[in-house]
């Protein structure tokens, strides 16, 4: 990292840390939990996107079913908390480990079979479906009834009255995600992954244990994603199989990374920022158009078009734009 880039990072982090002061508690500008909440959503989606990016971007193992890790994390901590009386903070590491374990298992199975590219992508989708159907059918998850986490808004209970704390939590996760991505650009592990991404056969010829590296990266990615699952459950206090294992979340993770630029450190964050802002602004658009009944779908039409336009004019993702500018 250049000194200039480092300076920017430090400045950005400082702004991020101070951000709630503008809108939150002391509120230097105007108290706005909405602004905090949108920032939370951006950071949170960026973190989940980063977990996808670690496997999908850096190691080239594109997945369509990343939600399987998210849902595993969410369910493991929630079941331990609600049915077994664990403190959610203690359940969190278990959830993270479970996500890593599921990642390792899926990795061992699929990579042993030699699955690559879209075959791997589709098998992850199938795993997510299996998990969703199981969650819908077994008593431990209460099936389709879902699990309601009792609201008890105390920090020691992993629940916060002020949304600012969830923002900070997401910020910490996001920074950890960025640090892991940064580490991948500098470490031998990351270099081996890059070699695998560029040409798996060549990587093997170089003596890289491709299978082991891929399983490891999927376990890492799964653990990260599962960490997000617990946070989601604790924030929204309700979980059901389609929330936990629905295909939309998988798509969102892939979308923020790819739009931002897969395989780049800041890709998921930029992608998440842009997509959420576009989403928030277009959602209002539906109410501005006068005289049209049910204009809300127009908002999503605009959103979809913007997506196409971004790809059309920025084929390397939004980070590609920055690189070109320099």
């Amino acid at each position: 990292m250049s000194r200039r880039a480092m300076l920017w990072c430090a400045a950005g982090l400082l702004v991020a840390i101070l951000y709630p002061l503008l809108f939150g508690g002391p509120s230097l500008i105007a108290r706005s939990n909405y602004a905090i909440n949108v920032a939370f959503l951006i950071l949170f989606a960026a973190f989940l996107g980063q977990s996808w990016n670690i496997a999908g971007g850096y190691a080239g193992q594109t997945s369509f079913g990343h939600v399987v890790f998210f849902g595993t994390g969410a369910y493991v901590s929630t079941i331990l908390h609600v049915s077994h009386g664990w403190n959610p903070w203690l359940a969190w590491p278990v959830a993270i480990a479970s996500g890593g374990l599921v990642g390792a298992i899926i990795g061992v199975l699929s990579f042993r079979a030699g699955l690559r590219g879209s075959y791997f992508a589709l098998i992850t989708l199938a795993f997510a479906e299996v998990f969703r159907i199981v969650a819908n059918s077994i008593p431990q998850t209460r099936g389709g009834l879902g699990i309601l986490i009792k609201a008890d808004q105390r920090p020691e209970n992993f629940q916060f009255r002020d949304p600012m704390w969830f923002y900070y939590l997401a910020l910490v996760l996001c920074v950890i995600g960025l640090a892991i991505a940064w580490w991948l650009t500098r470490s031998r592990f990351g270099a081996r992954l890059a070699a695998i991404r560029e040409n798996e056969d060549a990587a093997m010829a170089l003596g890289i244990d491709v299978f082991r590296e891929k399983v490891r990266v999927l376990a890492l990615s799964g653990a990260m994603c599962a960490a997000g699952g617990t946070v989601y459950a604790q924030k929204y206090l309700y979980l059901d199989p389609s929330i936990a294992f629905g295909v939309e979340k998988s798509v969102e993770m892939l979308l923020v990374s790819m739009i931002g630029g897969a395989g780049t450190i800041f890709g998921p964050l930029i992608g998440s920022g842009v997509l959420h802002l576009v989403g928030e602004i277009t959602r209002d658009l539906g109410n501005v158009v006068p005289g049209i009944k049910n204009a809300q779908p127009l908002a999503l039409i605009v959103y979809g078009l913007i997506l196409v336009v971004i790809v059309a004019y920025l084929p390397d993702g939004l980070t590609g734009l920055l690189r070109r500018r320099r």
Partner: peptide, 21 residues
């Protein structure tokens, strides 16, 4: 190829909501 995936995803959002509208 990744771009085709994203474009078809975008088109799908447009088509679904155009139908809704």
């Amino acid at each position: 190829d990744e771009n085709i995936l994203l474009i078809t995803l975008g088109l799908s959002i447009v088509a679904d909501n155009a139908a809704l509208f």
